[in-house]
């Protein structure tokens, strides 16, 4: 009993910080979402859906697509690090994949804005390899640019978590399956991935919510329509000081992320049961 009390006392300062500096302002913005000229109503949501329903859909598609690609890349990298049989290739991959890990989003935006532009290094390399002619080059600074930026930045993070979990797996089952003649792909899909599913999902949930809140990448890579909800919120505030619609858009993206967090919670409860 006293242990419980002690635990609560130890957690309390951190929880209080989150409550005062995040949940209270969050509550204010939720209330603000329903406030139309001093009265309560759904006017802000009508306006938000009328103006930005395309952007809301765009955000969900972009973030889901990025999450799916991040998951596949992370499994591929973690899988090769765990099951790869060429020690040199494993060492090179281990050294290589982590470079974007801690690069700030705003820097990722700047780095990829120069790389993916019409005269960026990507197009220049394709031209010099003879794959494209200079006239065929196009800028990738649209939805593709956002997906590339998200995957570039977040896949190493999930791969780091996943490969850590894979490294601490029991090698016995893997070796046994290998000796029975199972291919490495089959071992990866049927033995390794199910055992690291919790870590993988944690990484993907963290990435999903991170991508939902990033403002700098959509602003720097693709600020024209259709764009992401975060860019719309910034625009509503900067151009019109329109807190109502900005808060309504914020609440919509909260509901999207909440559904993802709910999936995580359910998975967590189930795996503990």
């Amino acid at each position: 009993m006293s242990k419980r009390l002690l635990g609560l006392i130890l957690v309390l300062p951190a929880l209080a910080t989150i409550t005062l500096l995040f949940i209270v302002p969050l509550g204010a913005s939720v209330v603000g979402a329903f406030e139309v000229e001093g009265r309560y109503g759904l006017g802000n949501f009508d306006k938000a859906f009328a103006l930005y329903s395309q952007d809301i859909l765009f955000t969900v598609v972009i973030v889901s697509l990025s999450t799916a690609i991040i998951g596949l890349v992370a499994i591929a990298i973690g899988g090769y690090l765990t099951l790869g049989e060429n020690p040199h290739a494993v060492a090179v991959l281990r050294w290589l994949y982590r470079w974007p890990l801690f690069i700030p989003f705003i820097v990722v935006g700047q780095v990829l804005r120069t790389f993916l532009a019409k005269n960026g290094m990507m197009n220049n390399t394709l031209v010099s390899l003879g794959i494209l002619t200079p006239l065929e080059t196009t800028s990738f600074l649209d939805w593709r640019g956002i997906v590339i930026a998200f995957v570039w930045k977040q896949a190493p993070f999930v791969a780091l978590l996943v490969s850590g979990a894979m490294a601490s797996l029991d090698r016995g089952t893997i070796e046994a399956a290998r000796n029975l003649g199972a291919s490495r792909l089959r071992i990866l899909i049927e033995i390794v991935v199910p055992q690291v599913a919790t870590t993988l999902i944690v990484g993907l949930v963290l990435s999903f919510v991170t991508m939902m809140s990033v403002l700098s990448v959509p602003l720097m890579i693709n600020a024209q329509s259709p764009t992401m909800i975060t860019a719309d919120i910034a625009f509503r505030l900067n151009a019109y000081r329109d807190y109502g619609v900005a808060n309504a858009l914020g609440l919509i993206s909260l509901l999207i992320t909440a559904s993802i967090a709910w999936i995580y919670l359910r998975h967590n409860v189930r795996s503990r049961a």
Binding site: A14, L26, A28, S213, T230, G250
Partner: peptide, 20 residues
């Protein structure tokens, strides 16, 4: 409680920062 600490990452920070 663990999820509570995730909240600042889970909500687009902009409207929250405006209120802060």
């Amino acid at each position: 409680i663990l999820i509570a600490f995730l909240i600042p990452q889970a909500f687009p920070n902009l409207p929250v920062y405006v209120n802060i």
